[in-house]
Write a protein that binds this DNA or RNA. Structure first.
Lengths: 341, 341
DNA sequence: CTGAAAGCGCTAACAC
DNA sequence: GTGTTAGCGCTTTCAG
């Protein structure tokens, strides 16, 4: 493990004095703007100024077996992992992977949790059955992309509810009044997205229809939307609970001879990069996936740092904001006039 | 403003060397256990080792006029303030109070926000009308005890939803099946508590009844519960959306000749200290009020620290866990047999 | 285990 | 603006 970067390393790297670097980074005192930029860039590149060092400590990353083998469903997970890994390498932490098939397999964890070089355990996108065993672990624990409804474990998640609200509001701002929520019910995460759509629709939510796919796949979503169209259900905009479902919706609409966005607008949630290559390019609400990974490590470190201290780090839940990625699948409600039923 | 405590101050204070203090605090190297304790105690007492210092900077605390003048409604707010003030003094920050009556009065704030000695602005328990002007402020902003549904402003709140779920689950664990949620609809906070009760009740939520008080006062709650009893609405447990409402429920039940907890159990949410002096002492879900105040200052500092830096602090929402304070107003469902309607 | 002293990383003061 | 240098606060080393 390379030593942590010092202010002097940056100075030598750029052939300038440490004082200048100090000024540039702290923002106090005069530094030429251009030089300051260069210094800050180098500081980031060299991983300067990271918090407490836990270098060499291990972090156990528990993922459900299911989340790893099913690539289509797990792309989201992969991006979270990417952010997690990057932050881990910045902090000099070692990530130990540990895939589990079911809650039973957690038994061995209690022992591992006591290892002295273990910083803590991260549970990534696991389901509720592991909450109970996880709560009784003796080391710091953080849930990533799930939360504990009883708030006995800390967690880092996107703000699913406001992400979905943002998606729905985008459509209503474009004049859409009859909105379909395309989903595959299941995890709490998805339930929160439904709540978000309801929040945004407010009093108009009785005009909302819910289209349920059989599975979290493009094919299932396509089938569900095709069926909704065949049943002549009325909507001019679709909020899909995930980009993958949105992709299915695009296909079904195209097959039915409907144009996107002229006839129907479609917006996804997740912000997977391939959305940009769909036809039309998918408007979506992007979740800061790498940031979620990075933050969960930070939270684990904070918890570990205060553990044993008089003031413990309280159990807390942190939700990160999402942002609208406007592409071409949404537009003003216009052509496809919908009659009230 | 006294200078921040240094390791040397602690050493002199105890008449020992700085090296020993260093070892005791970092936990590396040998220090006599007893001496180590003494050193750590002194460190806390002298406020040693607080994060970055913003000593002397001002924090603008905006509270709604309403929240300050109505003592009964604002006790909660006062405790949050207490935690806020304590942390501010630890960090050497100056809190400037600024009461507003309505969103219009925010106009002047834009100017104040640019003052160079201003660290940022905290909005405490304000209502949604101020969100819009607050979002366009140029300085770091954190909402305390409210959140931004659009997630454009960071916030620190209790986890109202899981707090309410915890309250309801406490009753169901005691065998209660017909539960009344006593509330005064209004702020989003309270809506979340309703959702929490629903979460906990799950499939049984159709047996839940909602009792709405006219106002967030003991009297209004008392009247509402009295009316529910007169209407012969069936319940053996009451989850009150706030301790103040719970106090009203206790009075109404007593007046109707019902015993608590033998006939009806009552649980509050908030954890106001006077709950202990009600008859019977109120079981409640305690919200870490001081911690909320302290954390919001921390979040403001984090945001301020990274502002202007290449990596901005992302907009995030932090929710703190609540805990059950078991007193005497809840018990096993027993005496008061309720027939299905 | 503890203290003295050397060393490290950063900032502040000052010169140009 | 930038480098030199002094100085501060903390940790590490080493002797006892």
């Amino acid at each position: 493990m390379a030593k942590r970067a010092r202010i002097r390393d940056i100075a030598e790297h750029l052939g300038i004095s440490t004082a200048t670097v100090s000024r540039a980074i702290s923002g106090k005192g005069y530094v030429r703007e251009e030089l300051g930029e260069k210094i800050r860039a180098a500081a980031i590149e060299l991983n300067y100024g990271l918090p407490e060092d836990f270098a060499g400590k291990r972090v156990l990353l528990v993922v459900s077996h299911e989340a790893m083998i099913d690539f289509e469903r797990s792309q989201f997970t992969m991006y979270v992992l990417e952010g997690l890994r990057r932050r881990a390498s910045e902090r000099g932490l070692v990530i130990d992977n540990h895939a589990i098939r079911s809650a039973d397999e957690l038994d061995g964890l209690a022992e591992l949790a006591r290892a002295s070089d273990l910083l803590g355990i991260l549970f990534l996108t696991v389901d509720d059955s592991i909450l109970k065993p996880a709560r009784s672990l003796e080391c710091p624990v953080v849930l990533v992309n799930t939360d504990d409804p009883e708030m006995r474990l800390s967690s880092v998640t996107p703000c699913n509810r406001s992400a979905a609200a943002m998606a729905a509001r985008h459509l209503t701002d474009l004049g859409h009044e009859r909105i379909a929520f395309l989903t595959k019910p299941g995890r709490r995460t998805i339930q929160r997205r439904l709540e978000g759509v309801r929040d945004a629709l407010g009093s108009r939510q009785d005009t909302m229809i819910v289209i349920e796919a059989e599975d979290w796949t493009v094919q299932a979503a396509q089938a569900a939307v095709a069926e909704a169209l065949a049943d002549d259900r009325q909507f001019t905009g679709i909020v899909a609970a995930g980009d993958i479902l949105a992709a299915g919706a695009l296909i079904a609409l195209h097959a039915a001879g409907l144009r996107v966005p002229e006839d129907v607008s479609v917006i996804g949630i997740d912000g997977l990069p391939q959305g940009a290559y769909l036809a039309p390019a998918l408007t979506t609400v992007s979740i800061p996936m790498q940031a979620i990974g990075a933050y969960s490590l930070d939270m684990l470190c904070n918890t570990a740092q205060l553990q044993g201290t008089s003031r413990n780090f309280p159990v807390s839940r942190i939700e990160l904001a999402c942002s609208l990625t406007k592409r071409n699948s949404t537009g003003l409600r216009a052509s496809r006039v919908v009659e009230p039923v």
